[in-house]
Protein backbone atom coordinates (compact mmCIF):
# COMPACT_ATOMS: atom_id res chain seq x y z
CA UNK A 1 0.00 0.00 0.00
CA UNK A 2 1.70 3.01 -1.23
CA UNK A 3 5.11 1.44 -0.85
CA UNK A 4 7.86 1.66 -3.36
CA UNK A 5 9.58 -1.43 -4.61
CA UNK A 6 13.34 -1.78 -4.23
CA UNK A 7 14.26 -1.66 -7.89
CA UNK A 8 17.72 -2.32 -9.21
CA UNK A 9 18.99 -2.02 -12.75
CA UNK A 10 21.66 -4.46 -13.89
CA UNK A 11 22.81 -4.16 -17.52
CA UNK A 12 19.55 -2.49 -18.45
CA UNK A 13 17.45 -5.24 -16.85
CA UNK A 14 15.25 -4.17 -13.96
CA UNK A 15 15.09 -6.37 -10.90
CA UNK A 16 12.60 -6.00 -8.09
CA UNK A 17 14.95 -7.04 -5.32
CA UNK A 18 12.10 -7.81 -2.94
CA UNK A 19 10.68 -10.28 -5.48
CA UNK A 20 14.07 -11.87 -5.99
CA UNK A 21 14.66 -12.20 -2.27
CA UNK A 22 11.20 -13.60 -1.51
CA UNK A 23 11.42 -16.08 -4.39
CA UNK A 24 14.69 -17.32 -3.00
CA UNK A 25 13.27 -17.45 0.53
CA UNK A 26 10.27 -19.46 -0.69
CA UNK A 27 12.49 -21.78 -2.69
CA UNK A 28 14.81 -22.33 0.29
CA UNK A 29 11.88 -23.07 2.61
CA UNK A 30 10.34 -25.52 0.13
CA UNK A 31 13.68 -27.16 -0.42
CA UNK A 32 14.36 -27.49 3.30
CA UNK A 33 10.90 -28.92 4.01
CA UNK A 34 11.22 -31.44 1.20
CA UNK A 35 14.85 -32.22 1.86
CA UNK A 36 14.51 -32.72 5.61
CA UNK A 37 11.36 -34.78 5.32
CA UNK A 38 12.86 -37.12 2.76
CA UNK A 39 15.98 -37.93 4.74
CA UNK A 40 16.05 -41.38 6.23
CA UNK A 41 13.39 -42.79 3.90
CA UNK A 42 11.75 -45.97 5.03
CA UNK A 43 9.52 -48.51 3.36
CA UNK A 44 7.24 -48.08 6.33
CA UNK A 45 6.85 -44.30 6.34
CA UNK A 46 6.86 -42.20 9.50
CA UNK A 47 6.36 -38.53 10.34
CA UNK A 48 7.18 -36.08 7.58
CA UNK A 49 7.67 -38.84 5.03
CA UNK A 50 3.97 -39.56 5.37
CA UNK A 51 3.17 -35.92 4.68
CA UNK A 52 5.38 -35.75 1.60
CA UNK A 53 3.92 -38.99 0.29
CA UNK A 54 0.48 -37.56 0.83
CA UNK A 55 1.43 -34.49 -1.22
CA UNK A 56 2.80 -36.72 -3.97
CA UNK A 57 -0.33 -38.85 -4.02
CA UNK A 58 -2.47 -35.73 -4.01
CA UNK A 59 -0.73 -34.33 -7.08
CA UNK A 60 -0.80 -37.76 -8.66
CA UNK A 61 -4.56 -37.77 -8.14
CA UNK A 62 -4.81 -34.35 -9.79
CA UNK A 63 -2.87 -35.58 -12.80
CA UNK A 64 -4.79 -38.83 -13.02
CA UNK A 65 -8.11 -37.01 -12.98
CA UNK A 66 -7.03 -35.20 -16.17
CA UNK A 67 -5.00 -37.67 -18.19
CA UNK A 68 -3.48 -41.11 -18.39
CA UNK A 69 -0.67 -41.72 -15.97
CA UNK A 70 1.60 -42.82 -18.81
CA UNK A 71 1.22 -39.34 -20.33
CA UNK A 72 0.96 -37.43 -17.09
CA UNK A 73 3.68 -39.15 -15.08
CA UNK A 74 6.28 -36.79 -16.55
CA UNK A 75 4.48 -33.80 -14.99
CA UNK A 76 4.54 -35.25 -11.49
CA UNK A 77 7.70 -33.47 -10.39
CA UNK A 78 6.48 -30.20 -11.94
CA UNK A 79 3.16 -30.52 -10.14
CA UNK A 80 4.59 -31.25 -6.71
CA UNK A 81 7.15 -28.47 -6.97
CA UNK A 82 4.52 -26.00 -8.20
CA UNK A 83 2.02 -26.76 -5.46
CA UNK A 84 4.62 -26.61 -2.68
CA UNK A 85 6.27 -23.48 -4.07
CA UNK A 86 3.04 -21.58 -4.59
CA UNK A 87 1.61 -22.63 -1.25
CA UNK A 88 4.73 -21.56 0.65
CA UNK A 89 4.87 -18.32 -1.37
CA UNK A 90 1.26 -17.56 -0.52
CA UNK A 91 1.92 -18.15 3.17
CA UNK A 92 5.03 -15.96 3.34
CA UNK A 93 3.16 -12.65 3.26
CA UNK A 94 0.63 -13.62 5.91
CA UNK A 95 2.40 -13.25 9.26
CA UNK A 96 4.00 -9.86 8.59
CA UNK A 97 5.42 -7.59 5.94
CA UNK A 98 8.64 -5.68 6.22
CA UNK A 99 8.98 -2.17 4.89
CA UNK A 100 12.38 -0.54 4.92
CA UNK A 101 12.58 3.21 4.11
CA UNK A 102 9.23 3.04 2.35
CA UNK A 103 10.28 0.08 0.26
CA UNK A 104 8.30 -3.13 0.67
CA UNK A 105 10.73 -5.99 1.17
CA UNK A 106 8.88 -8.87 2.82
CA UNK A 107 5.71 -9.99 1.06
CA UNK A 108 4.38 -12.98 -0.83
CA UNK A 109 6.29 -13.35 -4.08
CA UNK A 110 2.97 -14.43 -5.60
CA UNK A 111 1.52 -11.01 -4.73
CA UNK A 112 3.45 -9.68 -7.72
CA UNK A 113 1.90 -10.05 -11.19
CA UNK A 114 5.26 -10.48 -12.89
CA UNK A 115 6.01 -13.59 -10.84
CA UNK A 116 2.60 -15.21 -11.26
CA UNK A 117 2.42 -14.36 -14.97
CA UNK A 118 5.87 -15.86 -15.43
CA UNK A 119 4.74 -19.10 -13.78
CA UNK A 120 1.54 -19.13 -15.83
CA UNK A 121 3.36 -18.44 -19.08
CA UNK A 122 5.85 -21.16 -18.23
CA UNK A 123 3.00 -23.63 -17.79
CA UNK A 124 1.30 -22.63 -21.04
CA UNK A 125 4.57 -22.75 -23.00
CA UNK A 126 5.28 -26.16 -21.49
CA UNK A 127 1.84 -27.34 -22.59
CA UNK A 128 2.58 -26.26 -26.19
CA UNK A 129 6.04 -27.81 -26.05
CA UNK A 130 4.74 -31.16 -24.82
CA UNK A 131 1.78 -30.97 -27.20
CA UNK A 132 4.15 -30.76 -30.16
CA UNK A 133 6.61 -33.24 -28.70
CA UNK A 134 4.10 -35.95 -27.85
CA UNK A 135 1.53 -35.61 -30.63
CA UNK A 136 3.58 -34.20 -33.48
CA UNK A 137 3.26 -30.83 -35.13
CA UNK A 138 0.42 -31.91 -37.45
CA UNK A 139 -1.87 -33.22 -34.79
CA UNK A 140 -0.98 -30.30 -32.53
CA UNK A 141 -1.99 -27.88 -35.27
CA UNK A 142 -5.15 -29.84 -36.00
CA UNK A 143 -6.09 -29.37 -32.36
CA UNK A 144 -6.84 -25.72 -33.14
CA UNK A 145 -9.50 -26.74 -35.66
CA UNK A 146 -11.40 -28.96 -33.27
CA UNK A 147 -14.21 -29.38 -32.68
CA UNK A 148 -15.15 -26.92 -35.48
CA UNK A 149 -12.76 -25.09 -37.84
CA UNK A 150 -14.58 -21.78 -37.47
CA UNK A 151 -13.69 -21.80 -33.77
CA UNK A 152 -10.04 -21.27 -34.70
CA UNK A 153 -9.93 -17.58 -33.63
CA UNK A 154 -11.51 -18.48 -30.31
CA UNK A 155 -8.91 -21.18 -29.80
CA UNK A 156 -6.16 -18.65 -30.31
CA UNK A 157 -7.78 -16.24 -27.88
CA UNK A 158 -8.23 -19.12 -25.43
CA UNK A 159 -4.50 -19.68 -25.21
CA UNK A 160 -3.86 -16.08 -24.17
CA UNK A 161 -6.90 -16.00 -21.94
CA UNK A 162 -5.71 -19.15 -20.19
CA UNK A 163 -2.32 -17.61 -19.55
CA UNK A 164 -3.79 -14.39 -18.24
CA UNK A 165 -6.42 -15.97 -16.01
CA UNK A 166 -4.01 -18.55 -14.65
CA UNK A 167 -1.49 -15.92 -13.61
CA UNK A 168 -3.82 -13.09 -12.59
CA UNK A 169 -6.16 -15.28 -10.55
CA UNK A 170 -3.28 -16.22 -8.27
CA UNK A 171 -1.90 -12.68 -8.19
CA UNK A 172 -5.27 -11.11 -7.51
CA UNK A 173 -6.17 -13.40 -4.65
CA UNK A 174 -2.88 -13.08 -2.86
CA UNK A 175 -2.40 -9.36 -3.55
CA UNK A 176 -5.92 -8.55 -2.36
CA UNK A 177 -5.31 -10.58 0.78
CA UNK A 178 -2.12 -8.67 1.49
CA UNK A 179 -3.73 -5.29 0.89
CA UNK A 180 -6.47 -6.05 3.36
CA UNK A 181 -3.93 -7.39 5.83
CA UNK A 182 -1.82 -4.24 5.52
CA UNK A 183 -4.93 -2.06 5.97
CA UNK A 184 -5.85 -3.98 9.11
CA UNK A 185 -2.26 -3.80 10.32
CA UNK A 186 -2.33 -0.04 9.79
CA UNK A 187 -5.51 0.18 11.83
CA UNK A 188 -4.05 -2.11 14.50
CA UNK A 189 -0.99 0.08 14.77
CA UNK A 190 -3.08 3.23 15.30
CA UNK A 191 -3.53 3.08 19.05
CA UNK A 192 -5.35 0.94 21.59
CA UNK A 193 -8.81 1.38 20.10
CA UNK A 194 -7.52 0.58 16.64
CA UNK A 195 -5.73 -2.49 17.93
CA UNK A 196 -8.76 -3.89 19.73
CA UNK A 197 -10.89 -3.17 16.70
CA UNK A 198 -8.46 -4.71 14.27
CA UNK A 199 -7.37 -7.86 16.08
CA UNK A 200 -10.52 -9.93 15.48
CA UNK A 201 -10.87 -9.20 11.73
CA UNK A 202 -7.09 -9.53 11.45
CA UNK A 203 -7.15 -13.08 12.79
CA UNK A 204 -10.19 -13.95 10.72
CA UNK A 205 -8.63 -12.62 7.55
CA UNK A 206 -5.32 -14.36 8.22
CA UNK A 207 -7.14 -17.63 8.70
CA UNK A 208 -9.11 -17.03 5.54
CA UNK A 209 -5.91 -16.12 3.69
CA UNK A 210 -4.35 -19.41 4.72
CA UNK A 211 -7.39 -21.11 3.24
CA UNK A 212 -7.18 -18.99 0.09
CA UNK A 213 -3.46 -19.60 -0.25
CA UNK A 214 -3.99 -23.36 -0.10
CA UNK A 215 -6.94 -23.23 -2.49
CA UNK A 216 -5.08 -21.04 -4.98
CA UNK A 217 -2.05 -23.37 -4.96
CA UNK A 218 -4.41 -26.26 -5.57
CA UNK A 219 -6.27 -24.44 -8.35
CA UNK A 220 -3.06 -23.37 -10.05
CA UNK A 221 -1.75 -26.94 -10.20
CA UNK A 222 -5.15 -28.31 -11.14
CA UNK A 223 -5.47 -25.89 -14.06
CA UNK A 224 -1.87 -26.56 -15.03
CA UNK A 225 -2.75 -30.21 -15.41
CA UNK A 226 -5.97 -29.37 -17.26
CA UNK A 227 -4.12 -27.21 -19.80
CA UNK A 228 -1.36 -29.77 -20.17
CA UNK A 229 -3.88 -32.55 -20.71
CA UNK A 230 -5.69 -30.49 -23.37
CA UNK A 231 -2.51 -30.46 -25.39
CA UNK A 232 -1.13 -33.87 -24.46
CA UNK A 233 -4.01 -36.27 -24.01
CA UNK A 234 -5.42 -38.06 -27.03
CA UNK A 235 -9.09 -37.41 -26.50
CA UNK A 236 -11.22 -35.30 -24.30
Amino acid sequence: MGHEAPMLEVFGIWFNLSNVMMLIVAAVIVFLIAFISTRNLKLKPTGMQNFMEWVMDFVKGLIKSNMDWKDGGRFHVLGITLIMFIFVSNMLGLPFSIIVYGELWWKSPTADPTVTMTLAAMVIILSHYYGIKLKGLGEYGAGYLKPMPFLFPLKIIEEFANTLTLGLRLYGNIYAGEILLSLLAGLGGAGVVGFTTAIIPMMAWQGFSIFIGAIQAFIFVMLTMVYLSHKVADDH
Binding site: W14, N19, L78, F85, D112, T114
Partner: peptide, 16 residues
Amino acid sequence: NVGDIIATLAVFIILM
Protein backbone atom coordinates in the same frame (compact mmCIF):
# COMPACT_ATOMS: atom_id res chain seq x y z
CA ASN B 1 10.95 -5.89 -14.87
CA VAL B 2 12.50 -8.57 -17.03
CA GLY B 3 14.80 -9.31 -14.13
CA ASP B 4 11.88 -10.65 -12.09
CA ILE B 5 10.86 -12.92 -14.94
CA ILE B 6 14.36 -14.29 -15.19
CA ALA B 7 14.62 -14.62 -11.42
CA THR B 8 11.26 -16.41 -11.14
CA LEU B 9 12.11 -18.87 -13.89
CA ALA B 10 15.62 -19.45 -12.59
CA VAL B 11 14.55 -19.92 -8.98
CA PHE B 12 11.68 -22.20 -9.90
CA ILE B 13 13.65 -24.34 -12.33
CA ILE B 14 16.64 -24.65 -10.00
CA LEU B 15 14.29 -25.52 -7.14
CA MET B 16 12.57 -28.15 -9.28
